[in-house]
Each structure stands twice: as C-alpha cells, then as structure tokens.
C-alpha cells in the first residue's frame, strides 16, 4: 500500500485542462476538512484535497495513473463537510472515466463488458438463470406457509418488476428468497425478466455514461415489453 511519494512537478500543470469540469474544483479553499474526514486519506499518497487541487492544476497523468480514485468509494463524506460544496465524488468518477478501459482495475470493466454483451455481469446464460430461479422457488414452496410458491418469470401486466443483483444467482442463492417471501406474503403481483435482469450498473463505477445508459435502457425495455406498472429500484 505504501508507495514512495512523488514530488508533484508543477511544470506539468495545465490549469485549462479540466476547465470544462463543473465540480466547483477551483473554489477549493484548501481547508483540509475533506482530507481529515476521508478514511482513504494517505493511501497512495493521496487525499481528497490533493485530488481537488490536482484537478485544478490540470495534472491529468498523475491523477489517471493513481489508484486512489479507485479506492475512494465516492461516499460523499468529503463533499458533505466541504464548506465550498465541491462535488468531489463526481470529480473522482470523472477521473475514473479517463483511464484506458483495458487498465480499469480488477474485474470492473470485464464485468461491464459481459453485461453489455449478455445482459448480466456474469455472462450467465438464460437457461441457467431460469434453472436457478426455479430451483430456489421450489425450496421456498417446501417451507410451511409458502405452499404453492412459484417464481413469476416474464409475467405480462404484473404490478412490480424486479431486477436481480448478479451475486444472488452466483454464490448467494439463499438471498433471493427474502424479497420473494415478502411478495408472497403481501400477495404482490410481481415478476422477474428472463433477459437483461441485471440490477447492478457498473458503468456508474467505471465512469462510463454510455454503458450506464444502455443498462438503464434495457430495464425500461423490459418494463414496456412486460407492460408492468411499477419498477422496484434495484437495492
């Protein structure tokens, strides 16, 4: 985690670089409240104040190369305490978006690519998805009080459309049951789409607005295709 802290070379500064970014970054009064409030301060030699100042100075390469924007969780604590209301989380997200896509750390971009291609981050085929849902549904039907439970997949005209977080059809199938039981007990008319069911939207994390739009648009397509009345916002 500790890396030798590089001296920032101000000859590289280009204050015009991020002029089009509208996060109030140039209004930073360098008070340091953001840096003191941030649990990630110090990692990689960065802290929120330094990031804001470096954006003002247009030190693009150092920002893009740093892992700090990827460790920052964009939690908004810094923005909350900032007396100038600088939008640091969106500023960090914009820095993330400047990374070459093949250098986005870990599986974030790979998961997103899978989602764009297959409709879900796992690349889980439709038949396998349906098998998992029905299997878990049968387990619920065996529990007292939930007799006759069935998973309503692609039910036209349902009231509520739900999405599925990919981890629930990966390693955490048991956690599919909670909402389903609540729906059953409430007598809700609900449904799950068999295509484009992904509830996460990793374009948000990688700073990829086009991908975000595509994933959101697919949920809307499902709402229109299935003629549902309501969307339960993904948890």
């Amino acid at each position: 985690m500790k890396e030798a802290q590089k001296i920032i070379d101000l000859n590289q500064a280009d204050p015009q670089k991020f002029r089009s970014w509208n996060f109030l970054q140039d209004f930073c009064i360098t008070c340091g409240l953001c840096a003191s409030s941030c649990p990630a301060s110090g990692i990689d030699g960065f802290d929120p104040r330094k990031v804001v100042r470096m954006v003002s100075l247009g030190l693009e390469q150092e920002l893009v190369d740093s892992k700090f924007p990827w460790i920052c969780t964009m939690c908004g604590k810094c923005e909350e305490v900032c007396p100038m209301q600088i939008n640091i989380p969106d500023l960090v997200r914009s820095i993330r978006g400047l990374r070459d896509r093949d250098k986005v750390p870990g599986t974030l971009h790979k998961g997103l690519q899978a989602a764009l291609k297959t409709g879900n981050n796992l690349g889980l085929p439709k038949d396998d998805f349906i098998f998992i849902l029905e299997d878990v549904g049968e387990e619920i039907a065996e529990e007292p009080g939930f007799e006759g439970f069935k998973v309503p997949i692609d039910k036209k005209g349902a009231n509520v459309l739900t999405t599925v977080h990919n981890k629930l059809v990966n390693t955490q199938n048991e956690d599919l049951k909670h909402w389903w039981k609540i729906f059953y007990a409430a007598g809700e008319d609900w449904t799950i789409p068999s295509d484009n069911w992904e509830g996460t939207n990793w374009g948000y994390f990688t700073g990829d607005d086009e991908a975000m739009k595509t994933m959101t648009g697919r949920i809307l397509e499902n709402m229109r295709r299935l003629e549902v009345k309501t969307l339960l916002w993904p948890e």
């Binding site: 460790i71 969780t73 939690c75 948000y204």
Partner: peptide, 11 residues
C-alpha cells in the same frame, strides 16, 4: 469501504 465498486478492483 465497499462502495463505489471497490470490491471488484482487487485492492
């Protein structure tokens, strides 16, 4: 500490 997509970053 797990927000912002940090878990799949590998950090």
């Amino acid at each position: 500490g797990g927000g912002g997509g940090t878990p799949p970053t590998g950090y």
